[in-house]
Amino acid sequence: MPAANLPASPGKPEPPDSPYPVGAGCVCPQKARFSADMILLWCVSLCGVVSAGVVGLVLLFVLREAWPALAEIGLPRMLRDTEWYPAGEVAEGSFSLWPALAGTTAVTVLAIGLAAPCGLAWAAVQHSGLPKPLAVPQRRLMELLAGIPSVVYGFWGLTVLVPLVNAWHPPGASLFAGGLVLAIMILPTVALLAESALAGVSPEWIRGAAALGMDRWTTLWKVSFPAARSGVISAVLLAVARALGETMAVLMVSGNVARVPRSLFDPVRTLTAQIALEMGYAGEMHRSALFAGGLVLLLAVTGLVLLCEWMDGGRMSAAPSFWRRN
């Protein structure tokens, strides 16, 4: 049993002067400062800092670009105005973020409302011992679904789904169509991540449940899901983040009218679609107002990621640190 924990070949004990850290707490040898390990460590850290720095720079850039709008129009007016006509002068135009915020929220809620139950059900079925000839092709199909580019979904939505919805309830390009396409797109995220969270549940617990005479449903509901809770919630939250950020497919099927939707079949505009549609053509203040919308989106996604982290119980911060000296 102890051999399994050793990094080197089992049976041959680690030499006492090994430069490698043993166990969780790093035991850094005296000569560490000049060893290849330390050089690698510095390089990797540098890369890490650079990539984190890029995120910081993106945030700063978006803030800088949004600043004219935040300063001259102001967030209160962006929330108080009722319409989005940003092309004119600051005094005449109206710069409400509500229509796009409402659109983004509505489409995302609809998409996750459809995708989460389906994805979780799929993960549960995969988890509870589907025969292999069924499970493997199903899994491959789900992975394929994850790999299809979003513009393909959008094109399918525009040429197939929207005309169908239109025949049923015009104008077709609507909140309903957008939510449906988005649900199909985020389904693999929910399903695959939830499945891998369920796969992480200790088999001993499952066997224990079987030994107690629980049926499959009870095992799933009372053992597997509670044990994989944080992973499953992360799966859903990451899917929400993806839904918030999706642009092309939603732009093609949801109508993009900047108006708060009143029904499922009203056209809606998301923040991402708003930016994609208008950025190339926007003048000074218009452009800045679009960046303000982008900032809101960035903050929303940041909030979701933080929530995700928190749900994971701060596992990251508990990881052993290489830098810790003893």
Partner: peptide, 24 residues
């Protein structure tokens, strides 16, 4: 502000696809 649109589009091709997919 006077325009009461049902669909807002970006480029020409998207407009043509939208109209081609909707008889009304």
């Amino acid at each position: 502000r006077q325009i009461a649109a049902d669909v807002v589009i970006g480029d020409n091709e998207q407009g043509i696809k939208t109209v081609a997919g909707n008889p009304h």
